[in-house]
Simulated scan of single mutants.
Amino acid sequence: MPSKFVGVLIIALIVIVGAAILVPMIMGFLGYTSYPQISASSATTKTVTVTTTNPSYTTTLTTTYIIGNRSYDAAIIFKLASPSVVQVTVYDKNFQQLALGSGFVYDDQGHVITNNHVVEGGNYFIIVTYDNAMYEAKLVGRDTYADLAVLKAGLSPKYPPLKLADTVIIGEPVYAIGSPFGLSGSITSGIVSQVNRTGITYVPMLQTDAAINPGNSGGPLLNSRGEVVGVATAGIEKSVAEGVGFAVPSTIVKRIVPQLITNGVYKHPYIGIYGEYLDPIIASTYGLPKDITSGFIITQIARNSPAEKSGLKVKDVIVAVDDYPIRKDPDLNYLMAYKYSPGDKIVITVIRDGKTVNISLTLAERP
């Protein structure tokens, strides 16, 4: 029976400048009971201070780089993580294979994380482990906006959960393990190329040059300590670009997955605006005052949305949300992803007809 690989969204390299359907995620983190770890009590550690922009306002993050015998190479990472990585095969109601992707063990309750586009449209799911054991699984929950899904199977305890990383550092080595083109247990390597990329899903994504091919989707992107920094999701077609792939960040996974397990869905907040980010050239095309060189200009407002009810108007230029400045992509998406949820009250500061106006609104649930 021919198989169809829907393990990766093959995408064109498109600059998306007009999307402002705001999609955040703010939920608790589900704890873990045990993780595969390699002991190295004599490890050398170095504490460094990293200053990052998130994205237009500055925060200081202090983290610990683990170097020497605690920073593992690809062979050890594979040995460490592969027992927790699975292949996901999806069948429709007529028992025809729809897709083949990857996933990884999330907790000791048998929950497995994968991508929504892997399981979408499926009725039956088979999980195959690294040692070729097969388990029937059921779909627990999925989120189309972040392209995440959770399956559950009666897995043996010998398949331990992988730990989700708390931080990611641009330039750090990463490893993708999965089943590209059905070749289970494959590992590729690269680095974290950048963070907070938009236009792939409705949440900010990690960018990596580690090879992500059809079949990799849903598999883990791991750092050099065997922690999951992202869920492999998409790769740009090689005829368009080389070494450009994307993953859902672990920090987003931590917010969404517990709700998928508990409720089957994740509720995203919603403002109901469309538009584009400004630079001096784009601002001039709208006839805006010369002192407006950045921000987000509203070009369309959804009917019956919080934006419409609050009095936001087309050609309003958003320059801040609460105390956070809005200057460039992905400022709005980042804030909505990490700071807000449905029901939150926010104050949006706009420039309207050359004057500063504060608009209060309550975020709704995304329809």
Rank of each mutant, 00 (worst) to 15 (best):
N123K: 09
G154I: 03
G219Y: 00
I16C: 06
D279W: 06
G235L: 08
A302W: 02
V192A: 07
Y130L: 07
I301W: 09
K315S: 15
L22T: 14
G121N: 08
V128R: 11
S239Q: 13
V8Y: 06
N69M: 03
S189A: 08
T62K: 13
L363I: 15
S189K: 10
L288T: 09
T52A: 07
H117M: 09
P36Q: 12
H111I: 01
G110I: 02
A75C: 01
Q194A: 15
I271N: 04
Y35K: 07
A74D: 11
D166S: 08
G230N: 08
L155H: 00
E308S: 12
Y91T: 14
V17H: 15
V86M: 01
I38F: 04
I76T: 15
I11S: 05
A19N: 13
R303H: 02
K138Y: 04
L312V: 05
N263L: 09
Q97K: 13
V228H: 00
I236V: 15
T356K: 11
D329R: 10
A74Q: 12
L288C: 10
T58M: 11
N223D: 10
Y145R: 06
Q109W: 02
G230I: 00
L139I: 04
S84A: 03
A307Y: 05
V244E: 04
T349L: 04
Y286W: 13
Y286Q: 11
L278A: 10
Y175F: 15
I38Q: 11
T89R: 12
V140L: 01
I10D: 03
I212R: 07
A146G: 08
G272H: 00
A364S: 15
K313L: 15
I126V: 15
N263I: 05
V253C: 06
N115D: 08
F5L: 05
P367C: 07
I16N: 14
G101Q: 03
I177H: 09
L222F: 07
L162C: 05
M1V: 04
A337H: 09
L30A: 11
G171W: 15
V6T: 09
V229L: 09
R255Y: 02
V119I: 14
G110F: 02
E276Q: 13
G18F: 14
I261F: 02
Q97S: 10
N263S: 11
L221T: 02
I292G: 13
A211S: 12
S34Y: 15
L164A: 02
N358E: 11
V86F: 01
N263Y: 05
E120V: 05
